[in-house]
Simulated scan of single mutants.
Amino acid sequence: MARDSRFAEAICELCAEACEWCAQQCGAHDHDHCQACAKACRECVDTCRAMAA
């Protein structure tokens, strides 16, 4: 991002996709630690997508 890489947008979008998948997987479980992971991953999705825009 700081060096204005031509790949920055794609990398941020890939990170968002990975975190979205993780949120879905962890969110499917009722354990507190899984729900905490899903919440963190959803926040990461939002941040990565904002950076990719």
Results as ranks from 00 to 15, higher is better:
Met1Arg: 06
Ala2Asn: 05
Ala2Gly: 11
Ala2His: 04
Arg3Lys: 12
Asp4Pro: 01
Asp4Val: 00
Asp4Trp: 05
Ser5Gln: 14
Ser5Thr: 08
Ser5Gly: 12
Ser5Met: 05
Arg6His: 15
Arg6Tyr: 14
Arg6Glu: 14
Phe7Trp: 04
Phe7Val: 02
Phe7Tyr: 06
Ala8Thr: 05
Ala8Phe: 03
Ala8Gln: 10
Ala8Ile: 01
Glu9Arg: 15
Glu9His: 10
Ala10Leu: 08
Ala10Val: 02
Ile11Thr: 03
Ile11Asp: 02
Cys12Thr: 09
Cys12Pro: 00
Cys12Lys: 13
Cys12Asp: 07
Cys12Gln: 12
Glu13Gly: 07
Cys15Gly: 02
Cys15Ser: 05
Cys15Pro: 00
Cys15Ala: 02
Ala16Val: 05
Ala16Lys: 04
Glu17Gly: 10
Glu17Ser: 09
Ala18Gln: 13
Cys19Arg: 08
Cys19Ser: 11
Cys19Gly: 07
Glu20Asp: 15
Trp21Pro: 11
Trp21His: 12
Trp21Phe: 12
Cys22Lys: 05
Cys22Met: 10
Ala23Ile: 13
Ala23Tyr: 08
Gln24Ser: 11
Gln24His: 10
Gln24Tyr: 08
Gln24Glu: 13
Gln24Arg: 08
Gln24Trp: 10
Gln25Trp: 06
Gln25Pro: 10
Gln25Ser: 13
Gln25Val: 14
Gln25His: 11
Gln25Asn: 13
Cys26Asn: 08
Gly27Phe: 13
Gly27Trp: 15
Gly27Gln: 14
Gly27Tyr: 15
Gly27Asp: 12
Ala28Val: 13
Ala28Gly: 04
Ala28Leu: 14
Ala28Thr: 11
Ala28Met: 15
His29Pro: 02
His29Glu: 09
His29Met: 13
Asp30Arg: 03
Asp30Glu: 03
His31Pro: 02
His31Glu: 02
His31Cys: 01
Asp32Gly: 00
Asp32Ser: 01
Asp32Ala: 03
His33Ala: 12
His33Ile: 08
Cys34Trp: 15
Cys34Thr: 05
Cys34Ala: 11
Cys34Gly: 05
Gln35Arg: 14
Gln35Lys: 13
Gln35Ile: 11
Gln35Ser: 14
Ala36Leu: 08
Ala36Gln: 15
Cys37Phe: 09
Cys37Trp: 06
Cys37His: 07
Cys37Gln: 08
Ala38Asn: 12
Lys39His: 03
Lys39Ser: 06
Lys39Tyr: 06
Lys39Asn: 00
Ala40Asn: 08
Ala40Val: 11
Ala40Pro: 02
Cys41Phe: 10
Cys41Asn: 10
Arg42Leu: 09
Arg42Glu: 04
Arg42Gly: 06
Arg42Asp: 06
Glu43Thr: 05
Glu43Gly: 00
Glu43Phe: 01
Glu43Met: 03
Cys44Val: 02
Cys44Asp: 01
Cys44Phe: 07
Cys44Asn: 03
Val45Gly: 06
Val45Ala: 06
Asp46Cys: 04
Asp46Ala: 04
Asp46Thr: 08
Thr47Asn: 06
Thr47Met: 07
Cys48Phe: 04
Cys48Leu: 02
Cys48Ile: 01
Cys48Asp: 00
Cys48Trp: 03
Cys48Gly: 00
Arg49Tyr: 04
Arg49Pro: 08
Ala50His: 07
Ala50Leu: 09
Ala50Met: 09
Met51Lys: 05
Met51Ile: 01
Met51Ser: 00
Ala52Thr: 04
Ala52Gln: 01
Ala52Leu: 01
Ala52Lys: 00
Ala52Asn: 02
Ala52Arg: 01
Ala53Leu: 00
Ala53Lys: 00
Ala53Asn: 03
Ala53Gly: 07
